[in-house]
Amino acid sequence: MTIHDVPPIDRQQTPSATTEPHQEVLAVARSSGRLRGAITTGTVLVVLWAGFHWNDPTSWTVGVPMALIGGALVLFLPASAPLQLSPLGMLRFAKFAIIGILRGAVDVSWHSLSPRTLQPGFIPWRTHLPKGGPRRLFAVAITLLPGTLTARIEDDMLTIHALDLSDATRDALAALEAHIAKLYRLDHKEMVL
């Protein structure tokens, strides 16, 4: 079994020029989104540089061009929607994630020590989280949590590989989804829409 010759799964969703009347506006919006991403990245890099070289003001002769280059490289990446995170949600999510990662590590260690108890399989999961950031965070967090691993993302269908196919895994997934919804301040009504 090799992993060559994989058929492409993702279709790039680019708005075509003929069907989209507001192509011009969209293009501007998209480019401004990229600019915002670049500025955010540059700011973060400046903060990081300040953290590394706080005791040496002359270091900014390299630091500022570096932040500009880092921001410029991000211009290649497609923009995503601005984040609307709730600070309290972030703290709660951080606590949840740290506990989850540790539990995941203990869980997989246990399985490595006694692989006979293992019953791996796939779980299809339809997520209500909106496209973009929340859904990607969901996919990443699934992989870090005990016994689950995102194997495929197709629109709102995720295929998850699980070491344990019981209901407990599904409950954990639902709990994680609720946590992420709270983090992004999405209430249930919005998510169904």
Binding site: V108, H111, S112, P115, P120, T143, L144, G147, L149
Partner: peptide, 16 residues
């Protein structure tokens, strides 16, 4: 661990 996908769990969780 018996198969590739299960081994991936070791890489993504225990290692991090």
């Amino acid at each position: 661990l018996p198969d590739v996908l299960s081994r991936l769990h070791a890489l993504t969780k225990a290692d991090s």
